[in-house]
Design a protein around this nucleic acid. Structure first.
Lengths: 208, 208
DNA sequence: GAAATATTGTTAACTTTATAACACAAACTC
DNA sequence: GAGTTTGTGTTATAAAGTTAACAATATTTC
């Protein structure tokens, strides 16, 4: 399978989440325009995305929900599952862990790291917290491949370099510091200050 | 000023943040390629963005940092400032508030809302928490225009409808439920589960 | 002060992403 | 069972976003 457009990958993740919700309501089939409605996008967009992953429906009956969920899983999941760690288990770290808990996924948040002695060796939000000093050892032992950075901005750069050395292959960076990583490591950044300022800009423009 | 591309608005916010950092280091001028370096984008991108907002530098000396910060402010800020509320002051709500504190901005997080009696009427992360029941009154009294939704998914839809009725003009939605809002209200959504699954996908693809 | 250098502003080309157009096939209608 | 409806898969078009190309100009060099 050729690499999919980033936006399509994002939507696949959302399709699956919505589809799981439909299963819970005992639905078996769903039309492209209904799935589109759940995400507030167009039916064409849905059909195009599914075309890209090579999924076909039984004509005129809509998509088989269970089958589609499995297909999406085969595309975006790592077969054996992937282990994830939260670096910095403050408010944001706990929030992320909480969002994840209960969501069926091949991604397992199996550890967190922090320097605060109040947190180290405790289970926080259902995840064991280790001291940052033991990171190298734990990342290798537990085969952690993905790290979510929820630490203060000052440590972001050096921390990113360190975890890449320890074998992390994907980083989700929530700090306000833009990082760069060597090729072979995937980096996704999200900056909530920027999001809020963007909202403010469009609110302002509407008024004018 | 015609409406700017969404991506440019996002970068303007980031430029400003980086520029403020430069000011703190007592720099006065910055070249497009240095500013680009801070965000890990290209110099062309920077120059193009600044062209769109009509900012010109003194040739060959780079951009006057202080001046550029002001120019960006005139573009993306609301003159009198805008008031923001956090709806749901759990882990994520507190994290957002914490990210914002200290950052110079025309955006003021001036209230939070929650239903938990343990939280109501207390100051949490520096922001007074009110009961959700009093939302209509407080939104109007405090002239709150922007809301950040950090509540459990189940309440997201009805809450969004309610706050729009009370006059909210911009929503940043952190719940996993896609919302829709009437025209005239700007909606920005961010789904962290999707981000993590995206990272996982690209980690997987690199391996293959 | 002419030539070389460095950096900008802008137009043009390209890439990515989204939307529209439409042919095709199952199911329904009569 | 011919014609209509409905929803799909795919190709074609448009819009958004990025990168490249290059003329213009202030500064430096000699």
């Amino acid at each position: 399978m050729n690499k999919l457009p980033g936006k399509t990958v994002e939507r696949l993740s959302e399709y699956r989440r919505q589809l799981l919700g439909c299963l819970a309501e005992n639905k078996s089939y769903i039309y492209s325009h209904d799935l589109a409605g759940l995400l507030h996008i167009t039916a064409v967009q849905v059909r195009r995305d599914l075309m890209l992953i090579g999924y076909s429906s039984v004509l005129r009956k809509g998509y088989d929900i269970r089958e589609l969920i499995d297909t999406i899983g085969r595309i975006i999941d790592y077969d054996e599952g992937l282990n994830v760690a939260i670096i910095g288990i403050g408010n944001l770290g706990r929030a992320v862990t909480g969002y994840f808990r209960g969501k069926r996924s091949k991604l397992n948040i199996i550890a967190s790291f922090d320097t605060d002695p109040q947190k180290v060796n405790k289970v926080i939000s259902g995840v064991k917290c280790f001291h940052t000093q033991d990171m190298e050892k734990m990342i290798r032992e537990m085969d952690i491949r993905i790290a979510i950075l929820t630490i203060p901005a000052d440590y972001a750069k050096s921390m990113a370099e360190e975890i890449v050395r320890h074998g992390i292959k994907g980083i989700l960076n929530f700090t306000t510091v833009p990082l760069n990583v060597p090729s072979g490591v995937y980096l996704e950044e999200y900056d909530m200050i920027t999001s809020i300022e963007k909202v403010a800009y469009y609110v302002k423009e509407n008024k004018v």
